[in-house]
Design a protein around this nucleic acid. Structure first.
Lengths: 250, 250
DNA sequence: TCTCCGCCTTGATTTACATCAATGGCAAAC
DNA sequence: GTTTGCCATTGATGTAAATCAAGGCGGAGA
């Protein structure tokens, strides 16, 4: 398990310069059909453009930290982001990975309940909460869509609780690979082979395992011929049906 | 860990007769300020009354099952309900306990993603999804409130992932007791002593532990003088600050 | 009142995974 | 080209919690 080293966290933060951009070409957004903005027509889209700002994040760059004032919301448009929570002694739980089309920053209370950090180079679309709320008031379609996305995330969170509380290491890794594969497919990318953009440590912190156990479990699945590990984090899954069985404990 | 025994589940289900009632005195609802309905004025409340129906559940009675068509939504008005998911071999993860004011049944897809079952005798308020949706369209306030509740649940789910993935048995039990205590207080009930309405098995299935470990951990906290176990599931917490420290791993 | 049964507790033993430790590969920095 | 440092892998050992096992207690029902 990764225990956060404060010094390295600061270094990482400094390293992550964010060169901001300015144009917001929502109507040309390639992942719009996956986002909150899917529900909008051209004129509504213009309103959204007016209050949104495109931002680039370097790999490792922080988007926001747990406990910070939740003044912005973000749409991921490119790259992979992780969200996580920490215990005071540095134990970490990654509670989700976000891909293009995903939405971050909903906070019922006024503070973020988790931290968000870029795993790869990322592009996100930023909205200030103050400006977005009146827009939601005027466009119930958008709010409905947001509620739908929140429900969907809630269901995913419950699935993840089942994984964390009751699955074995092998079942966890199998479920993780299948879920990544599915999400890649949903985005029109290859579901097989699937690319793992994140480190073994991040995977471990997502699945409630250590790096070593993650690595050993990959090795085990490889030996069993269920997966093939290629360079660049590419994982081929010749035994995808077998992987499905494993993920269910069969 | 409880592995679901089909026979006993059926017995339990038959045992749970639900004598339905008919009146819906929303305006007299004692937990309204905690629910979706908090946002509503008198005339809106009347509309809600018109499409809601009060239902009583015996202890152990099922509300709905995972995979069932999600045609209803429910507001809990009295009692405790558990929601859970199962693996095919019977391993169970309780993903939440619901108390008066809580809302169940949101399902983005058309099927419930989990099962819901009464822990104690319960009263719930039922809405059909078909009738509720147009009402939400007309009352954005209510939809906004629902989004707020969903965000809140999402934050709770993430906290629970941190617990499941990274906390020790002792930390899990401590966090659990504190969270129940807080929720009781939010409802104007005693936070100390706090009453545990659910069995050790349910607690274990919620925390990713076995009954035995739950029991041993309670014993350990009792020996340490942090809690006192009284009959009827009442837990007194003389060392509530100590319990806070324990829950954080200090 | 007695019996039964489910729930809780406690003890002995096992085990899946964590921890500790060492090494190799690769990419960035010098 | 060499060094540095991160990341992944693999092996040896330790341990928290699971599993297996045995009573005890209290409420429901005869």
């Amino acid at each position: 398990m990764q225990r956060l080293d404060i010094k390295s966290a600061l270094t990482r933060r400094e390293a992550a310069k964010k060169p901001p951009e300015d144009k917001s070409p929502c109507s040309a957004c390639s992942v719009r059909h996956l986002t909150v903005c899917a529900a909008l027509d051209e004129s509504e889209l213009a309103e959204v453009s007016a209050i949104s700002k495109t931002i680039e994040l370097a790999a490792g760059g922080p988007l926001f930290d747990e406990g910070e004032k939740a003044s912005n919301l973000y749409n991921v448009t490119a790259g992979t982001i992780k969200i996580y929570k920490l215990l005071s002694d540095g134990r970490r739980q990654v509670t989700g990975f976000l891909f293009p089309g995903d939405f971050v920053g909903l906070a019922n209370e006024s503070l973020y309940a988790y931290s968000a950090e870029a795993v790869t180079v990322c592009t996100v679309c930023r909205f200030s909460r103050r400006e977005l709320e009146p827009l939601l008031d005027r466009h119930p379609k958008m709010e409905r869509r947001l509620l739908g996305m929140a429900s969907h995330e809630l269901a995913a969170a419950q699935e993840q609780m089942l994984l964390l509380g009751r699955k074995t290491a092998k079942e966890k890794i199998a479920s993780f690979l299948l879920s990544l594969s599915q999400r890649a497919q949903d985005r029109g990318q290859s579901g097989n082979p699937v690319t793992l953009a994140m480190s073994r440590t991040d995977i471990g912190d997502f699945l409630g395992l250590t790096t070593e156990t993650v690595s050993r479990t990959f090795t085990h699945l490889r030996s069993a011929g269920v997966i093939v590990l290629h360079p660049g984090g590419k994982v081929e899954i010749p035994g995808i049906n077998r992987l499905r069985e494993i993920s269910e404990g069969l």
